[in-house]
Every structure is written in C-alpha cells, then in structure tokens.
C-alpha cells in the first residue's frame, strides 16, 4: 500500500508542476499586457482560480493583439 502511494505521488506531481508553471507564466503575461478582452481584474481571477484552464484561456482569448 505504501509503494502504491509513492507511485501515485510520482504520477500526480507533474500535474501540479505544470499547473504552477502555467499560473506563474500566466501572471507574468497578465502583468505585461496593457489591454485585455474584458476587465483586467477579471482575468486575474480566472488565471489564479481557473486551475489549468484559466491561464490557457487567458493566453488564447484574453490578450488583445495589436
């Protein structure tokens, strides 16, 4: 049972790392963007609380490209 738990952690750890990296990069991008589609503070909430989908959504539709 102990071994099983260790394996589970090894499997889940990458997910947590990916989620963290996505969130951090999303926040950097959020800081650097002047204009967003919709209110800027709303995107902050989406990035922080939107788990993995939040930052991805922000990268795809959040920023206004000029």
């Amino acid at each position: 049972m102990e071994e099983l738990k260790e394996l589970d952690l090894a499997v889940i750890a990458p997910f947590i790392i990916i989620q963290l990296v996505l969130m951090i990069v999303g926040l950097i991008a959020w800081f650097k963007t002047d204009e967003t589609n919709g209110p800027k503070w709303m995107w902050l909430l989406i990035i922080v609380f939107g788990s993995m989908l939040g930052p991805i959504l922000f990268f795809i539709v959040g920023r206004r490209q000029n």
Partner: peptide, 25 residues
Amino acid sequence: RNFKWVWVPLVFILIAIMDPITTYF
C-alpha cells in the same frame, strides 16, 4: 515574447497524458 513557447508545450503534455492517467486511476 507572447509565451507560446511555454504554454503550448505544457498544454500538449496535459492533452497527451490526461486520458491514460485517468484511465489508470
């Protein structure tokens, strides 16, 4: 500069491993 080189690989990893791992669990 618009971070595509960071998030696109991460998203592809997620897409690729999601189904095998949920099936396992």
